[in-house]
């Protein structure tokens, strides 16, 4: 099977800045693939390399097996949903959605019919006559999606697609995107700095840091078995433990929800402070000079600040990491 997208030793340098540094990556056909990382980690540049807005300094990119070096964006059957949606303010919604068809020479009636279909797909039927200024943020997001999908791209790129939406709308859109992707079977590549979003939507995740990929894997892999201190810390705020704390000779990670209070045994720890998160309470502990995060279900009483408690965890929850970055 050919991969939808493959990077071989791809670098993109801007002067002395190595935005993307020697990246190898395979994205399978039909996959929902997330690129996760803090800002400036190179994930967006990777997306732009696929779209063709940037050209690699070195290395090779293939899309469905075809080398795309020197191919401009308008000749790539890849479409992008931009972070700011990039809707054309001078065009009506229907003409925004039909834009890709228009520039390819599809007749007016036909392209409006297809655009109307695409609008129905994103649950905005009959919005065609409006102007972009008359839509809410969520609606614009859907228009941007429809505008990309109407071209039937083989790969859909999404750049922080949910970044500008409020929490409630975000969760709803996450679900919709996921089901849309399943229904259409198109490869989705999306960029996000929100690990929750990546974990809940993606089939696989690539975690970026400083222009490099730290780890690629399923959400569960990434979450439970981070390969490095960076991944452990960035994805889900794990407790990163130094080698001498566990006595294993390696850095390890311990998920906050894996720590439990116990009446006897375990380790002693002092409660530094706690905060109420809704369904859970976050308790910050100090154990032998090591700061530990713990998540308790809200149904359990939270210990007092300053109290000394005993904590324990299962040995299999300690995940040893090979990479000490």
């Amino acid at each position: 099977m050919t991969n939808a997208v493959s990077f071989t030793a791809v670098s993109r340098h801007f002067g002395s800045v190595r935005a993307v540094d020697d990246v190898d990556l395979e994205i399978g056909e039909g996959e929902f693939f997330a690129m996760l990382g803090p800002s400036g980690s190179g994930k967006t540049t990777c997306l732009r390399l696929i779209a063709g807005f940037e050209q690699p300094t070195s290395g090779q990119i293939r899309i469905f097996g075809e080398a795309v070096e020197g191919i401009p964006p308008y000749r790539r059957n890849v479409n992008t949903v931009f972070q700011d949606y990039a809707l054309f303010p001078h065009l009506r919604i229907i003409d925004n959605v039909a834009y890709g068809l228009m520039v390819r020479g599809v007749g007016r009636a036909e392209r409006h019919r297809l655009a109307e279909e695409a609008l129905a797909l994103v649950e905005l039927p009959g919005y065609g006559d409006r102007r972009t200024g008359q839509l809410s943020g969520g609606q614009r997001q859907r228009v941007a999606l429809a505008r990309a999908l109407v071209n039937k791209p083989r790969v859909l790129l999404l750049d922080e697609p949910l970044g500008a939406l409020d929490q409630k709308l975000r969760e709803q859109m996450q679900e919709e995107l996921k089901s849309l992707q399943k229904a259409l079977g198109i490869t989705f590549v999306f960029v996000t700095h929100d690990q929750g979003e990546a974990l809940s939507m993606a089939d696989r995740i690539a975690v970026f840091n400083q222009g490099r990929i730290m780890q690629v894997g399923s959400p569960e892999d990434i979450y439970r078995r981070p390969n490095s201190r960076f991944v452990a810390d960035f994805v889900g705020a794990s407790n990163v433990l130094p080698p001498d704390f566990t006595g294993t000779g390696k850095w390890s990670s311990l998920r906050p929800e894996a720590i439990r209070l116990t009446s006897s045994g375990g380790k002693p720890a002092r409660v530094a402070w706690h905060s109420f998160l809704g369904g859970q309470t976050r308790v910050v502990l100090d154990s032998q000079g090591q700061r530990l995060n713990m998540l308790l279900p809200s149904t359990e009483p939270a210990p007092q600040d300053g109290a000394t408690v005993r904590i324990r965890w299962n040995d299999q929850d300690i995940h040893l990491m090979d990479d000490d970055r």
């Binding site: 807005f53 992008t80 303010p89 890709g100 071209n151």
Partner: peptide, 24 residues
Amino acid sequence: SLIEASGDLGAAPGQTLRHVLLPL
């Protein structure tokens, strides 16, 4: 991003000029 979006949607530079840049 509007210019990139136009190219991304398949418009050659001349088309982007005509349909996006000039009207704006």
